[in-house]
């Protein structure tokens, strides 16, 4: 049996627009999504903003009723057997909300432990263990209102492990964490993975998805557009290489010229403080460099690197450069 089975899941929101002349607008957040996650697998769910990732996770965690299709979690139907599902899953929606700020960290955990029906004798031992696991040892008696954002997110991780669930849904758990915090977080996730927990993870950090996931589904506009291992996804772009050009204030005109070059498959620009990184996907490899430099004539150019494609490049090609 798979830990998670999703079949033709669909969700349409009806949003009311306008205050006075009320009209209803339908938003298809999840159009038609199917995938399976095996037991013990770490499954990444990637996709641009608004692709339907959070909506999907809400349906899998029994918090939203699907418009169509079905999902089974640990063999239980997410709608009809919601309570059975809830006992076996943990979930985090990234960010710092969702905790009782007036209570201490420990008391937040005590409260949620009581909601999950964890025997007080068990939670008494488990809470200090979890606080240590997420790096909050010694801070448990402080009020959560005084925690930093990262600390609150760590507390969420401890919260979701209270009842020792087999399946975890983590929606952007590392959003807003500092690099060291994010790294520690990943080691917690790897630790959970080694305990054979099934994990469904969404993130906008491609290297993170690459490093952690066994398999990845990329979704766009509510549909799965690719589903493979990270290696398999990179195969989609194995013909490509990426020319990275560091520039300082490139003109729109020069960018336009670059885009028109026949061998440029995709161009994206990343702003990094005063400089910009031009990421050019091409099948020509290093041979493309002279033409690229020609197109950039008159612009201030720093380093130029030609490299192998990463998961991010595969993602950009699959999603169509829109991300």
């Amino acid at each position: 049996m798979n830990a998670i089975e999703v079949e033709h899941l669909r969700r349409v929101y009806r949003a009311q627009i306008g205050v006075f002349n009320r009209s209803i607008k339908e938003v298809v957040a999840v159009d038609d999504i199917s995938f399976d996650v095996k037991q013990g697998e770490l499954f990444g769910l990637l996709g641009p903003n608004g692709a339907g990732k959070t909506t999907t996770i809400k349906m899998l965690t029994t918090l939203l009723i699907p418009t169509g299709g079905s999902a089974s979690i640990a063999g239980f139907d997410a709608v009809k057997q919601a309570t059975d599902v809830r006992r076996r899953i943990g979930f985090i929606f990234g960010g710092e909300r969702g905790l009782y700020w007036r209570l201490s960290g420990d008391d937040n955990l005590r409260y949620f432990a009581s909601l999950y029906g964890v025997d007080p004798a068990v939670s008494k031992k488990r809470i200090p263990y979890l606080m240590e696991l997420v790096g909050l040892k010694g801070r448990g008696n402080e009020r959560v209102g005084g925690y930093s954002r990262g600390m609150k997110q760590r507390l969420h991780v401890a919260r979701t492990l209270l009842h020792d669930p087999d399946i975890l849904f983590l929606d952007e758990p590392t959003i807003g964490l500092d690099p060291v915090g994010a790294r520690e977080f990943r080691s917690v996730i790897l630790n959970l993975q080694s305990q054979k927990k099934t994990i469904l993870l969404t993130t906008h950090y491609m290297f993170e998805a690459d490093a952690l996931s066994d398999r990845i589904a990329i979704i766009n506009k509510g549909c799965v557009i690719a589903l493979d291992t990270p290696g398999g996804l990179k195969q989609h772009v194995s013909d490509l290489s990426v020319v990275e050009v560091e520039t300082f204030g490139t003109s729109e005109e020069a960018l336009g010229k670059l885009r028109k070059l026949p061998f440029v498959d995709a161009l994206s620009v990343e702003d990094r403080e005063q400089k910009q990184m031009l990421l050019i996907q091409t099948t020509r490899g290093a041979e493309a460099v002279p033409d690229v430099m020609n197109a950039l004539e008159g612009q201030r150019v720093g380093s130029v690197i030609v490299r192998e494609p990463t998961l991010e490049d595969a993602y950009v090609r699959l999603v169509g450069g829109a991300a």
């Binding site: 918090l63 009782y100 700020w101 029906g117």
Partner: peptide, 18 residues
């Protein structure tokens, strides 16, 4: 206001008791 509703309703706790 606390934003805890999803986490509250995501638990198997008896609603009557809550």
């Amino acid at each position: 206001d606390a934003g805890t509703l999803p986490y509250l309703f995501g638990t198997p706790a008896n609603r009557f008791m809550i």
